[in-house]
Nucleic acid binder design. Structure first.
Length: 422
DNA sequence: TCTGGGGTCCTAGGACCC
DNA sequence: TCTGGGGTCCTAGGACCC
C-alpha cells in the first residue's frame, strides 16, 4: 500500500504557524512579484478565488479587509517542509518526497489493520511538532492514493485519513472523481475526454484498453491501469536532477542590455551554486529571454540559446561566462523584456567529469573551482549569498528588487527574527 | 497598470549511419 | 525519367506535475 501525505493549503498553513490570528480567516499567498495566487486557505477557496488568478483581480478584497494577503516566503516554506518530511522519514521505513508539500509513504511490511492508526498518529504528530495540518490518502497505487487524499481533505468525516482498500470503495471513489482531477490527466486532455463522454475516473476505467491506447498512448494507459489498482508508476529513484533552472519575471519590463545581462549573470551564478551543492556539473548552459506575453499590443520575442561547454563545469566563472555569451547572441534591442532565465543541463556527477581533448586547461579549471569554493564558504559564513561575486553580477541579490509587499519574517531560519516574536 | 517558478517524461521528426 | 530499408540518436515541443 501507498500513503500520500499532503500538507493542507501548505503555504497558507506555514504563514499561520507564525500568525495564529490568521486561523479561520480567508488567506492567500502570492507568487513572486506578488503576481498571482499560488495558495489559498479553505475560506478563500469558498470565496471563489481560483488558483493562479492575478492579484490585481482580487486586490479589492484585500483592501476592504475580507482577505489577508501574504507574499511568498520560500525560505520559510522550504524549512517547514524539511521539518515535516523528517518526521515522516523517522516514522515509516521508506518515503518518497514528491514535492514541497507531498510525500508518499511506502507501507510495505505494515499490516493493513495498523495502517489507519499509524496515519492518524502521524497527522497529530506533524500537527503538534510543526503546526502544519496534513491529510493522508491510502491505496494500492499512487494514483489511487492521490484520489483518496482528495477525499480525506474534502470530507472532515474521514478525520484526515481516507483508505481505498477494497473494490467497492474504489468504484465509489472513482465515480465521484471528475476526470480532470485524476493525477496524470491534465488541462489539455480532460476536455477531450469529456467530449468523448468520459466525465469521471470510473468512466475512464470502463473504456477498453485499445481505446485508451489509441487516443492517449502510454501515459494514458499507465493512469488507466493505476486506477484499476495495477502499479505502473514505479519507485522514485534518487537520481540526480537533469536540469537546474533559475529564472525570474521582472517587476517592470526592462530594455537595457547591460541591466538584463547583470540579471542573467546572477541567474547563472545561482545555477552554478546549486550544481556545486549537489556535487554535480553541467555541460549545457541555456539562456532565455521573454517579452511580456500578456501585452498583445507589444511585439513579442522569446529567444533561447544553448552554449555547450567543452567540459562539464560547476564553477561560477565558466557558467556565467557561457550564459553571457549566449545572452549576447540573442539579445535584440527595441523589445521590452519581462523575464529571463538560465537553465543548466546535461548534468553529471562532479567526480565523473572528463576533460575534453582540446581547449581544456586543467590548471585553469582547478583555479576556477577553488575560487568558487571560497566564494561559497565566505558567503555562507557571512550569511550574505552575494557578498563575494563576479564583477558581472548585480550588486545585491537578483531577487532583491522583486515586488514583495506582504512578506512574512524568516521566523524558522533566522534566530534574530525568531527572537522578535513576543 | 497589474499575470510565478521549477521540474519530468513522452513523442515526432530530422540527422545520421550502414 | 527512374532514387531502398532499417536502425539509432538527438532535439524541440508539448503534456504533465507541484
Amino acid at each position: 500500500m501507498y500513503a500520500l501525505v499532503d500538507c493542507n493549503n501548505f503555504f497558507v498553513s506555514c504563514e499561520r504557524v507564525f500568525r495564529p490570528q490568521l486561523e479561520g480567516k480567508a488567506v492567500v499567498v502570492l507568487s513572486n512579484n506578488d503576481g498571482c495566487v499560488v495558495a489559498r486557505s479553505n475560506e478563500s477557496k469558498k470565496m471563489g478565488i481560483r488558483m493562479g488568478v492575478p492579484y490585481y483581480q482580487i486586490s479589492h478584497l484585500a483592501e476592504n479587509g475580507s482577505l489577508t494577503v501574504c507574499s511568498s516566503n520560500y525560505t520559510l516554506y522550504g524549512d517547514m517542509s524539511d521539518r515535516v518530511m523528517s518526521i515522516l522519514a523517522n516514522t515509516v521505513p521508506k518515503i518518497e518526497i514528491y514535492s514541497i508539500d507531498e510525500a508518499f509513504l511506502i507501507l510495505d511490511g505494515i499490516r493493513e489493520t495498523e495502517i489507519a492508526p499509524l496515519c492518524r498518529a502521524l497527522i497529530s504528530k506533524v500537527r503538534k511538532w510543526t503546526g502544519i495540518p496534513v491529510s493522508i490518502g491510502v491505496a494500492g497505487t499512487k494514483t489511487l492514493a492521490k484520489i483518496a487524499s482528495h477525499f480525506a481533505k474534502k470530507y472532515p468525516g474521514y478525520g484526515g485519513v481516507c483508505m481505498i482498500d477494497d473494490d467497492r470503495k474504489r468504484q465509489k471513489a472513482l465515480s465521484l472523481t471528475p476526470i480532470g482531477e485524476v493525477w496524470g490527466i491534465g488541462r489539455k486532455i480532460a476536455p477531450k475526454l469529456m467530449e468523448r463522454g468520459v466525465k469521471t475516473a470510473w468512466d475512464y476505467v470502463l473504456r477498453p484498453e485499445p481505446w485508451i491506447r489509441e487516443h492517449y498512448m502510454l501515459a494514458g494507459l499507465r493512469t488507466w491501469m493505476e486506477l484499476q489498482g495495477i502499479v505502473c508508476v514505479e519507485a522514485e529513484t534518487d537520481a540526480a536532477r537533469k536540469t537546474i533552472c533559475t529564472s525570474r519575471s521582472f517587476a517592470d519590463m526592462l530594455e537595457d542590455e547591460d541591466e538584463i545581462s547583470l540579471k542573467v549573470a546572477d541567474f547563472a551564478a545561482h545555477c552554478a551554486k546549486k550544481l556545486r551543492q549537489e556535487k554535480s556539473a553541467a555541460m549545457d548552459v541555456t539562456t532565455f529571454l521573454r517579452t511580456n506575453r500578456f501585452r498583445s499590443d507589444l511585439e513579442q520575442y522569446c529567444p533561447s540559446v544553448t552554449v555547450r561547454l567543452d567540459t562539464a563545469a560547476s564553477n561560477t566563472q565558466e557558467i556565467v561566462s557561457a550564459a553571457l555569451k549566449g545572452f549576447r547572441t540573442i539579445f535584440k534591442p527595441g523589445y521590452r523584456y519581462k523575464k529571463a532565465g538560465v537553465v543548466v543541463g546535461s548534468i553529471v556527477p562532479e567526480d565523473t567529469v572528463q576533460g575534453s581533448l582540446f581547449g581544456f586547461d586543467p590548471e585553469l579549471r582547478s583555479k576556477n573551482d577553488a575560487i568558487s569554493r571560497i566564494m561559497d564558504r565566505v558567503n555562507s559564513l557571512t550569511g550574505d549569498s552575494s557578498l563575494l561575486r563576479l564583477a558581472s553580477q548585480k550588486p545585491g541579490h537578483y531577487a532583491s528588487d522583486i515586488r514583495s509587499e506582504h512578506r512574512s519574517r524568516r521566523f524558522s531560519t533566522s534566530f534574530d527574527e525568531l527572537m522578535e516574536i513576543k
